[in-house]
């Protein structure tokens, strides 16, 4: 599974980073950084939750 951020949509809420801290974090400017855009199979469910909690549908998985 691969995660991508739609930068035009992302508002930096950070709910995704709360759901999946092992995969992503917000930097000092509040910009989302994907630490593991290629999600290991073991973290797929957590990654999906991060995608689901985004209030503005900016985080996508495929």
């Amino acid at each position: 599974m691969k995660l991508t951020i739609d930068r035009d949509r992302c508002e930096g809420y950070g709910l995704c980073a709360e759901a999946a801290p092992q995969l992503m974090h917000l930097d000092a400017d509040g910009e989302l950084v994907l630490d593991a855009p290629d999600v290991p199979t073991s973290a797929a469910v957590v990654a999906e939750e991060a995608v689901r909690v985004c209030p503005v549908a900016a985080l996508k998985s495929r």
């Binding site: 930096g12 809420y13 950070g14 980073a17 709360e18 917000l26 509040g30």
Partner: peptide
Amino acid sequence: VNRRIPITR
């Protein structure tokens, strides 16, 4: 208001 701030902050 019109300010990007993470929910945690």
